[in-house]
């Protein structure tokens, strides 16, 4: 419901706020599912920093979205078909939390049984993230660093368009 409100809202400021609420609700959902690490990330990144950054961007842009009236039929068709396929695929998924899921039988038993022997730490998520799957995490860090560089590269250039306009005004 909150997600629908985000999409429907033309006021970008309230959309940003609603999106923060949406993130907080997902964080609560992750807590219910016992995924403390993911919940903490969702609350800190989704509800916290993303909202702040979106608001910082809103300070640069206009507050209201341009209303688009035209109905894009091909887009609607693509979305409907994709959504239908995904719902159809859901019926093929194994039961949620069943003991014989591929998720539970592949590498998870090794992590659950051996993490403490290998590392002596109780948080399996930290062990998987930083040690067993360390190269993935290294890639993530590089991605974040690159994102910072990208934003710097885009925004360190002075706003030329405006300058030119004000120069034309001078002439």
């Amino acid at each position: 419901m909150v997600a629908v409100a985000v999409v429907a809202s033309r006021d970008l400021f309230s959309a940003a706020m609603l999106f923060a609420i949406y993130s907080l609700l997902s964080a609560a959902l992750f807590v219910v599912l016992d995924a403390g690490d993911v919940a903490l990330t969702e609350a800190a990144v989704g509800a916290g920093i993303s909202t702040i950054l979106v608001l910082a961007v809103l300070a640069l842009a206009k507050r209201y979205e341009h209303p688009v009236k035209a109905l894009n039929l091909p887009a609607l068709a693509v979305v409907t078909v994709t959504g239908a396929c995904l719902f159809w695929a859901v019926s093929d998924l194994p039961d949620f939390g069943a003991a014989d899921n591929p998720v539970q039988t592949h590498v998870a038993p090794y992590y659950v049984n051996e993490t403490y022997n290998d590392m002596g730490i109780p948080n399996m998520v930290a062990a998987v993230l930083a040690s067993y799957r360390s190269i993935d995490t290294f890639g993530e860090v590089i991605v974040i660093f690159t994102a910072g560089l990208g934003v710097f590269a885009l925004l360190s250039v002075p706003p030329k368009r405006r300058r030119r306009r004000s120069r034309e005004d001078d002439q």
Binding site: G36, D37, L40, G48, I49, I52, N123, V125, A126
Partner: peptide, 20 residues
């Protein structure tokens, strides 16, 4: 982070939010 939920990603974001 090894004992309770958390780690570098979350901590970094929380620390940055204090500065913000």
């Amino acid at each position: 982070g090894e004992y309770s939920p958390g780690g570098g990603f979350q901590a970094g974001v929380i620390f940055a939010s204090a500065w913000i």
